[in-house]
Amino acid sequence: MAAGGDHGSPDSYRSPLASRYASPEMCFVFSDRYKFRTWRQLWLWLAEAEQTLGLPITDEQIQEMKSNLENIDFKMAAEEEKRLRHDVMAHVHTFGHCCPKAAGIIHLGATSCYVGDNTDLIILRNALDLLLPKLARVISRLADFAKERASLPTLGFTHFQPAQLTTVGKRCCLWIQDLCMDLQNLKRVRDDLRFRGVKGTTGTQASFLQLFEGDDHKVEQLDKMVTEKAGFKRAFIITGQTYTRKVDIEVLSVLASLGASVHKICTDIRLLANLKEMEEPFEKQQIGSSAMPYKRNPMRSERCCSLARHLMTLVMDPLQTASVQWFERTLDDSANRRICLAEAFLTADTILNTLQNISEGLVVYPKVIERRIRQELPFMATENIIMAMVKAGGSRQDCHEKIRVLSQQAASVVKQEGGDNDLIERIQVDAYFSPIHSQLDHLLDPSSFTGRASQQVQRFLEEEVYPLLKPYESVMKVKAELCL
């Protein structure tokens, strides 16, 4: 049975990233139509530049190519590739079939990587351009969430054990800070992308030097003109047959890092959902379990974690691919890159769409948070109580021993009897502590235990987050809708 299948058929496997999760716009960027249309555009740009620099290419040939950029006979191309065992030459023939007058000058002087690699770089750039505003929107939604809850005390956790208090907004800023680093890295790697350009079979530009009869300047002009037509500021000066596969490492490393950030955020949300302090959106008709109707599973956060793990592992592909590119190139890269580049971007696209949807509907339960604080705060307040007693004339050592005994009794009630923490009640009825009984409410005010959390939130948002989001103001209103 021949390899390949009808990918629109229910009898043929289709990647869930495309069929179930990723956005239509990201799927289109990695589609065959987008790819092969870009090949034709690159052939047109090459012909236009070659004509401008004096090669015998007519206006009629150029116009014929322009008129057929979208006229792609995919069936013919597939048949040609089956016959020739070469995808680029299959599309040269297919393009030439609908451009008979231009057929002889299509791909003039070029090698397969002229269309293959340059198209990949265009796709990487455009895919990054799709991700950047999506990530900015996630940051914006979380920034709104953090600002609104900047002063809401909550129990902090280290080692997932109760620690000092923080605020809900401050905790959210930990998430935002990681995503801001990801946004900066995505922008950097996007701006650092260079075009492969017009380089020939081993990167020496020998074929173009021959076409222009040894004119170095025209060869350099050709490279520059096509690079500018493709919208790049610069091209690699040095290439082998391909652009260095280190570029793929750079791009997928940034995406993998984004995956790590999203995994951490969504894990926190899942843990908070278990504590009943916070939940992701839950639709009115949504079913959490087929057997347990009360369940409210954090399905979206779980999906993000599941896909983020996949995204983090994909960076190993370009690392290994770059390491086995012998001399000017081997074909070890080809099949692998067809999979890992598309999957990385479709996965990143999915987790950003999902995280935006989550961040637009996060639900906080202040009463649950308050109750958990009441359970733990008495123990945390013991040092403040000791200091207040010393100020009232008591002995630190005597007070410490009193607190120690009462704390152990209260802990026994919590752990052995399943009761509430009654340390404060014990202190309130103990005559030894009568000098500070009137101060206990103040000493137990949760806001006095959150330090500068709310001020940190305000400063972080104003100095770091809002300036970073400013270039994306025009796209901030787009909502994230999930079908599944």
Rank of each mutant, 00 (worst) to 15 (best):
G4W: 15
A22D: 06
Y34H: 10
W39F: 13
W39S: 08
G54K: 09
L55T: 04
P56Y: 14
I62C: 09
I62M: 11
L69G: 06
K75S: 11
M76W: 13
M76C: 14
E79V: 11
E80W: 07
R83C: 10
V92T: 11
F95K: 05
G96Q: 04
H97Y: 13
H97P: 00
C98I: 12
C99T: 13
A103R: 14
L108C: 14
T111H: 00
C113P: 04
Y114T: 04
V115K: 00
G116W: 01
D117P: 00
N118K: 00
T119P: 00
D120H: 08
D120E: 14
L128C: 13
L132W: 14
K134N: 15
A143E: 04
K147V: 09
K147C: 09
P153Q: 03
P153T: 05
T154Q: 12
G156F: 00
G156P: 00
A163C: 04
L165Q: 11
G169T: 01
R171Y: 02
C173T: 08
D182Q: 01
L186Q: 07
K187I: 12
R188M: 07
R190E: 07
D191R: 09
R194Y: 06
G197P: 00
G203T: 01
T204Y: 00
L211A: 08
E213C: 13
D216C: 09
H217A: 13
K218R: 12
Q221L: 12
E228G: 10
A230L: 00
G231M: 07
Q241E: 01
Y243N: 09
V247R: 05
D248T: 04
S253D: 03
L255S: 05
S257R: 05
S261H: 04
S261W: 03
N274A: 08
E277C: 04
Q286T: 03
P293G: 06
R296F: 07
E302M: 08
M316T: 13
A322R: 04
Q325Y: 05
R329M: 01
L331G: 03
D332W: 06
S334K: 02
A335T: 10
A335M: 00
T347S: 14
T347W: 03
T350A: 14
L352W: 02
L355S: 14
L362C: 08
Y365M: 10
I369T: 08
R372H: 12
Q375I: 09
L377K: 03
I386A: 03
A388W: 02
A410D: 10
S412R: 13
V413A: 11
E417C: 09
G419D: 08
R426V: 04
H442C: 12
T450Y: 02
R452P: 02
Q455K: 08
E464W: 07
V475H: 14
M476D: 15
L482A: 13
L482W: 05
L484E: 13
